[in-house]
Computed example of a mutant assay.
Amino acid sequence: MKKVLWPILPKPWGTADMEFHYGLWNGVSSLFSQSGRQLGEENARPFILNHHIPAQMIVCKYKDSREGRKINMSALRIAMQNFDAALDITGAVHAHHLAQLPPAHVPGIWDLHIIARSSIALIAYQKRCTRHKPFQSTVSDALTSQYQFISGVFMICRHMLEHNHPAIEQNSPISAEALYNYADRHDIFISFNGAACAGSIKKIHEFLDFCNAGNALSAPAAHTLSRLVDDPDNWYQYGLATVELDCFVENERSQRLAARRGIGQSDPDRSAQTYAALGGYVRGLMDRPVPAASGSFRHGALIRQNHILEQLGRPVVKSIPRSHIRARLGCGQDGR
């Protein structure tokens, strides 16, 4: 394989307001694994940091929406070698999250979304937290593989949030089969360039089943997490804070888009309501929650980003650039 040269840290990781400006997934996706491949492969974002690393591509034969499309065998081989390790990490994140919930609580899709986002936060925390040692510029193949598997769950939940699916509106439990069928029906297995997720139908079902079942087959959660992050409780609070920040942003964006479509205050956009409800659920899990409402959107975003920076041991910022606010809201607003 051609030798790949990469920076110690891509630009997003040196940006003080990375969690607000880029979000977790975009920044993480541009990092490199120990095998020299980018975590997001051809989907690595921001696009300017995508190195377009060559991969062996074959035509997909799975009998679903992916049939006839190209799949990346180079990444799949590495991922399958680390499948059991990815289950172990997923189980540990699942167990840590469920340990924060009341014993009688029945986990729903909000919990699945938090588990997926907290998993992605493992990598962000490793690279961003000043207390995490030793620092490594690459991501282990085991954690890379878990990121690639769990990203599918995140993308399903994100699509459901954006389209206000009844399951996510009501925080209902959801089966692996329902998750798979939803992803297949809405082309979530297909990337922007027409390539497809390379995992077999059987392995996708197995992973989705495990995401719902938790750590029944995994090593003890505390041991697994302590090998990945310096302080599992602080990592978890960091993950929650990033989810709450995204809910805050998406609630605002949904309201502004609804206003542009002419939906009145008496008939607010339902997606905004779901983001607000999910944000409230997350704040209930936070040790030091940020206010539900904090004046202007720009002020609320700043409070949340600084809350995150304090958890990472990084200096707080005085403001978030208006250009970053406009880019994140994505609807031409000035961020006031």
Rank of each mutant, 00 (worst) to 15 (best):
P7V: 04
L9E: 11
M18A: 14
W25D: 13
G27K: 02
F32W: 11
Q34Y: 09
G36V: 02
E42K: 09
I53P: 06
P54Y: 13
E67T: 12
K70F: 08
M80Q: 15
A86N: 10
L87T: 01
T90L: 15
G91L: 01
H94Q: 08
H105Y: 13
I109S: 00
I109E: 00
A124G: 12
Y125F: 15
T130R: 11
P134S: 04
F135I: 01
Q136E: 08
V139E: 01
Y147I: 02
Q148I: 05
V153M: 07
P166T: 02
A167Y: 14
A167H: 09
Q170Y: 05
Y180E: 03
D187Q: 08
F189M: 07
N193S: 13
I201N: 14
E206C: 05
E206K: 14
G214N: 04
P220A: 05
L225S: 01
S226D: 12
S226F: 11
R227L: 14
P232M: 11
D246Y: 12
E250T: 00
E252P: 05
S254K: 03
S254Y: 04
Q255N: 15
L257K: 12
I263C: 12
S271L: 06
Y275T: 06
G280D: 14
G280N: 12
V282S: 03
R283E: 11
V290Y: 08
V290S: 14
S294W: 08
R298A: 14
E310P: 03
R314S: 07
P315N: 01
P321Y: 08
P321I: 09
S323P: 03
S323V: 06
R336D: 14
